[in-house]
Design a protein around this nucleic acid. Structure first.
Lengths: 194, 194
DNA sequence: TGTACATCAGTGAACGCGCGTTCACTGATGTAC
DNA sequence: TGTACATCAGTGAACGCGCGTTCACTGATGTAC
């Protein structure tokens, strides 16, 4: 089974994409190596040809998840001015669509509470992702990093909480209330409810 | 080893308190039955005399954790008016003390992202705790439930995110920024930064 | 008052299971001759 | 051009371990006589 030069990289990429989805859907400690390999069409034994251990995979998967979000974010807001981009971002982030699809969503809203229990490589990947997202938000908020972090806390908190409660109506209400207020705090609407 | 009438209840209470701390410190799936029983000074086999299975313990532990928070919250704000109580609550919740002591903190900030993967009993206990906290906050905000949920999302989000990042300085900055802005949104200070 | 017995909270060995990881092996294909 | 060989991504059985759960057993004490 000798393969082309790019074959191994393609396989690794398939494993990584499967892991990026699974880690968000089930948490770093809720997914298994065998499960991810099966998702990529392989058996578990081959895993160690691509990653030294599970922690390295989880760290790479988190970096990949942030990168996916960043690309989507870039596509979504292409050519927009700051006001338009902020509106588009908040509408996409604090949404029912995001709530119901954690496997392709923001890692912050999905695995934050698992982070304190993770190893250094995983935490470093997460740190980098958070810093990047704060930076991009701040760039649209007149470089006000404090406001950017406060808004990110509410955005991530609202999505996480909406997923945690089992009453769908309450979940959607939580998102609606936060979305409206976040946009008001960004100066995106005329009427600002406190 | 026949014991007094209250002995079994006291033991159960000890197991429950140990579980309430451990579930918050390590997450519902990160703690083991044997570990909790050892914390209560017992061996693992005796567990099933008190709880039918682990899920029942986790559900009871979450209810206990919310009850502990409610009692502390009650003590803290005793005799205060709404403005004073809100200030005291936010200062205690969005604090470095809360960040560094998850085992005695709010379950929302600690285990939210584990909830979607939990069984019905656990989710019901969590739902009840969230509804209770929103109700108590709203009572101090002229019954504005929407504002209460928005503020709770930011409070829980800020604490969770501050624990998730590994840079302590960033963690404290996140808390400071959210605490200031949350109090401003509650109308608790003169100067409101957006 | 004294004694035999029933009770039952707690013990600790054992179970089946899933996990991360290891490792001897496979076999299609690029390369050397 | 044809052939033998080296390569190495991927396979699948096996490992040690920790988990939730089960169960036969223990033994101090309240209770019946």
């Amino acid at each position: 089974m000798r393969y082309s030069e790019t074959h191994k990289q393609e396989t690794r990429s398939r494993v990584l994409k499967a892991a990026a989805a699974a880690v968000r859907a089930k948490g770093p400690d809720g997914v298994g190596v065998a499960e991810i390999m099966a998702e990529a069409g392989l058996t578990h034994g081959g895993f160690y040809a691509h990653f030294p251990n599970k922690e390295a995979l989880v760290a790479a998967a988190i970096a990949e998840a942030f990168a996916q979000s960043r690309r989507r974010f870039g596509r979504l807001t292409e050519g927009m001015n700051a006001q338009e981009a902020l509106t588009a971002f908040v509408d996409a982030y604090v949404s029912n669509e995001h709530r119901t699809r954690p496997e392709r969503g923001c890692p912050i809203a999905t695995i934050s509470s698992d982070l304190p229990r993770q190893g250094p490589a995983v935490r470093a990947a997460f740190d980098a992702g958070v810093a990047g997202l704060i930076g991009r938000l701040a760039a649209w908020l007149d470089a006000d990093e404090g406001l950017a972090t406060s808004l990110l806390s509410e955005m991530a908190g609202a999505v996480t909480l909406s997923r945690a409660v089992s009453d769908d109506a309450l979940a959607e209400r939580l998102l609606d209330e936060s979305r409206t207020r976040i946009k008001a705090r960004m100066g995106l609407t005329e009427d600002r409810p406190q």
